[in-house]
Amino acid sequence: MRVLQLIDSLNAGGAERVAVNYASVLASRLEGSYLCATREEGLLMESISKDVGYLFLNKRKTIDLAAIKRLNTFLKQNNIDVIHAHATSFFLATLIKILNPNLVLVWHDHYGNSEFLESRPRYVLKKCSKWFNHIITVNAKLESWAIANLSTASVTYLPNFAQVDSNEPQTILKGVFGKRIVCLANLRPQKDHLNLLKAFQLVLKKHADWTLHLVGKDFQDHYASRIKGYISKNNLKQSAFIYGSCSDIHHVLNQSDIGVLASQSEGLPVSLLEYGLSKLPVVATDVGDCHKVISTEEEGLLVEPKHSEALAQAITAYIENAELRNVAAENLNAKVLSEFSETGVIDALITIYNSNKP
């Protein structure tokens, strides 16, 4: 079997990491594993296995005939059986499926605003879903939504998994060793960095030597400007730092002491699993499927979204109790290794591919 992972970009986001992880792991499990970035390359180029066949389309518009032709030619030249389209790449995948009716099309829904599904645009997606052979979702809410709203008979919730990268260390975090809080999240409104900064201000009142490190793509937009403005206005430039995207995530996390997510909405965040693999104690908001990763206080602390006081209290609890955070870090690491492992997810994924073959 030959499978192509289709993704719009290779920026360091959750869906992008999953696509790259799948392509790299499947290279040793299938006859052929391929990856296509449709619109933009990025940092995750460094993480693609050398055994993965790669194509960059440089797609410039919604219906780009030249890009469609290049992708279609690539599929035929490599005898690809399955196209696994991630997130918004479903539209291009549908056009390809129309041209190749025997191709198996699996769509992977990574929608991050799963707390606000009632306002999700669905018209085009529903039309395209008639062509999907199978839908994979990253949490149970998205699975239920797909069953109720889309036209695909087969839908499966498949949890994300994370891998420890082996990229060359290059990012050096600022601040005092042993007193660093890290947030691994692209600068998007749903990640609610502003709520995290408000909570961090409360933490600083008692623990002024701790620092906050924001790692994730800076889109240079209004939301990013608000974050930078808040840091400047509240005199946090010596305590809160923005790094942009980093390719050496494992190295970044090894320099950190507490992992945090302040999101208003999530699927199942890959960064949460990466914290667990790196043995970090975690404070996160109780959104999406975070509760499936952190199901007890012995595995981490969950708080309400948009509640800076609760977030600050949880972070402070870990700062003031090293034993508490060490126990949580060990337990979360064991949970991630046992329940969100690469082997279990990939076995289930291959079963999905095989069950949809003509």
Rank of each mutant, 00 (worst) to 15 (best):
V3Y: 00
V3D: 00
I7S: 00
I7W: 02
N11M: 12
N21A: 09
A23H: 02
S24T: 15
V25F: 03
R29D: 09
L30H: 03
Y34P: 06
Y34Q: 02
T38F: 04
E40A: 12
G42H: 07
G42M: 04
L44R: 06
I48C: 10
D51E: 15
D51G: 11
D51A: 15
V52R: 02
G53T: 04
F56V: 02
L57C: 07
K59T: 12
T62N: 15
I63N: 04
I63D: 03
I63S: 01
L65T: 12
L65S: 11
L65K: 14
A66Y: 10
A67C: 13
A67D: 09
I68K: 09
L71E: 00
I80S: 11
H86G: 11
A87I: 01
A93V: 14
A93M: 13
A93E: 09
T94C: 13
L99I: 06
P101V: 13
H110I: 06
Y111V: 02
Y111W: 14
S114A: 14
S114I: 04
S114L: 10
E115Y: 02
L117K: 05
L117C: 07
E118Y: 13
E118H: 13
R120H: 10
P121N: 13
K130P: 01
T137Q: 08
V138H: 04
A140D: 05
A148M: 14
N149Y: 13
S151E: 14
T156E: 11
L158W: 03
N160Q: 05
N160W: 00
F161S: 04
A162L: 03
E168A: 14
P169N: 11
Q170N: 15
T171L: 03
V176T: 15
V176F: 10
C183R: 01
L184D: 05
Q190C: 14
K191Q: 06
L197T: 04
F200L: 07
V203A: 01
V203Q: 00
K205P: 01
K205N: 12
A208W: 05
D209V: 04
T211N: 06
V215K: 02
D218I: 11
D221V: 03
Y230D: 10
N234H: 15
N235A: 13
N235F: 08
L236D: 09
A240V: 07
S245V: 09
D248Q: 07
H251A: 13
L253N: 03
N254T: 07
Q255C: 12
D257T: 13
G259W: 04
V260Y: 01
V260E: 01
Q264L: 15
L268F: 02
L272T: 01
L273V: 11
G276L: 08
G276W: 02
G276M: 09
K279T: 11
P281F: 02
P281M: 08
V283I: 13
D286N: 15
K292H: 13
L302G: 07
L302P: 07
K306L: 15
H307S: 11
S308E: 12
E309S: 03
A310K: 08
L311P: 00
L311Q: 00
A312H: 01
Q313P: 01
A314H: 02
Y318H: 06
A322T: 07
L324H: 08
N326W: 06
N331T: 14
E339F: 12
S341G: 14
G344L: 11
G344E: 11
P358V: 12
